[in-house]
Design a binder for these strands. Structure first.
Lengths: 193, 193, 193, 193
DNA sequence: GATGAATGAGGTTTCATTCAT
DNA sequence: TATGAATGAAACCTCATTCAT
């Protein structure tokens, strides 16, 4: 194993522990000492990899956002016609959230805290570029409304996160056909006509 | 002025300061000492009115939720037919959020933190009772889908909060006709057929 | 006892402990926790009276400098003729330093550390004003050289501190007549002719 | 280049970096990690050449003191008669300090910190032996007062350091004739009669 | 009721030092 | 020899809470 991978491993251990602790206990009540213990590294090591606690949290946020973006385009939805591709993406998002409850709780906490001062910033990944291109094409084709990206997001994937949170909490348990219906509703909300 | 009202006044001062500080700085980074200074009362006084900091925050949450519930049924939407009454309620919600940015930021932070361990709990107010009755009637009449209350919420008012947050942040600026369209979309998402 | 004096007392306790600890152990190796224990107050209390550790140290410095300035003019040296008044002041300085070993060690450490970024700044006290007036008069009268204040200081009182430090350390033990001789030498070094 | 000289080089790099960092930032606030980075070597390497941080600092002190002692006797002052030789030495000291500002700041910090527990100890170098012999001869010849070495030092070279520090700080700028005058004053302070 | 000085446990971060490579 | 990641004790400082006034 190379030095590079060892270093990566430590970072990953720290990320994993941070995610676990914060999703369980919240931003407040997640001391570095606890994260260190859970990671199996010393507090000092955390400060070797990250400038400070905020830096760690921001880095974790982007790591998760990037993983989410990748999951979004799984199964090549671009190949499908409207409105199927958008429903597909919606279901991908929901599936990611439900499969990654810790990540979901972390993301929502982050986005609703003053950590998130920036507006709607997306990772600069290949998948996001493809998604944006798809949206633009749909709008060019006159099938999707020309609404601000934030509005499109809240009417579609925004709904997916929150339903996923409810499902993670055990409050609801949507089956495949219910999900398909809801996905269709969300897509219809941004469709023209 | 009676002692009762003086006491009420102090409580209100504390609530207002807590809301202002937390909406600006977040749950972490909102020390009692800062809240006290902003209230114009001493830390000791806060502990006279509230058992501890958590108690204060929970109490503030319920106060805001109750105010929100009241605003929801403003203009007597019950008197209107389906789907107008639901659109009306949606617009009431959006209007409340935009008119109360601090409250909105606080609520969303609270609901996405481990403070909120409870599932979907609503204030036990008259307005909420009327709202629930209205929903039940709509479902009896076969116009609204029989989905779990959490799902109905996320498809309708859940969207309203998040759009309001975007508007508060200055990212978007929806006019009346755009809002009416979105409200209609949300209602359609829970309508039968 | 009034609140004012209680508060003063706590400050004085903290000052005394800081002085003792730093003169014994140096700037490095004088943790707030040790100062707190020595003061008989909690660390938190120190941060109630001082913004931070640097603030405490600067405040202590000025307190000592002011006390020193007062001691300098004891016995009304202005009333005496040249060069007696300057010899008197020199002996006052030496006596203060020897009588206040902790203060002396603290001052010298402070002045030789990057804490002291400012050049030769004197407390704005009555005594210092009288001293400066005296020097100016001596120069007007053509008995004292017109050298920069820093040079005058190093040739006179600067020598006093360092001899006092040697005496405090037990390396030397100057008697009254030796001291008088040295004082006279220092004064002659800044005299005209 | 031999191994010996390589080793010497590393030591010199470490010494130079330590001197630079401490003279800029002070004893406190000069972490080994910073010194290592400035040296271009790793922290581990520093601990290869020095037992610990204190050891490094003490070694640096003696290195500088020795260099200073050598500079003191430059130009063969012994060959000159009293009081010229002492004035010459005084000017050598002043010139060294001004030419080596980092060394001067380091020395003064060191001598005023509890690092310096020892009394007046001089390097055991050839130059110091010659200097001591010269002093003894002057005293034998009845031209220099028989005062403790510490007193002689403070009245002469002690003044030189502190004036040099003022000049380094930019507070004063003494020209050659002013310096000659001051040197003469200092010598007169230890002269007989 | 009201105050705010005082507390001290515990938070974030630093840094001298070690040791596997 | 040389490295620098890793350590963990300890530094500075914060802040929820108490309590004498």
């Amino acid at each position: 194993m190379t030095d590079q991978t060892i270093e990566q491993d430590k970072q990953q251990l720290i990320f994993a522990a941070t995610l676990a602790v914060i999703s369980e206990r919240g931003f407040h009540d997640s001391p570095v000492s606890v994260i260190a213990k859970r990671s199996g590294v010393s507090p000092g090591t955390i400060y070797h990899y990250f400038e400070n606690k905020d830096d760690l949290i921001h880095a974790l946020f982007w790591k998760i956002e990037t993983a989410f973006a990748a999951a979004l385009m799984a199964g090549d939805p671009q190949a499908e016609p409207w409105p199927d591709h958008l429903e597909h993406i919606w279901l991908n998002a929901f599936a990611f959230y439900v499969a990654h409850p810790e990540e979901t709780l972390f993301l929502e906490q982050y986005k609703n805290s003053p950590y998130q001062k920036d507006a709607f910033i997306l990772p600069d990944s290949d998948e996001i570029h493809r998604l944006m291109a798809l949206i633009e094409a749909d709008q060019q084709n006159g099938v999707m409304q020309r609404l601000p990206i934030e509005v499109l997001h809240e009417l579609t994937l925004g709904v997916a996160v929150r339903l996923a949170k409810r499902q993670i909490a055990g409050a609801i348990d949507l089956d495949q056909s219910e999900l398909a219906n809801i996905a269709r509703s969300c897509v219809r909300a941004v469709a023209v006509g």
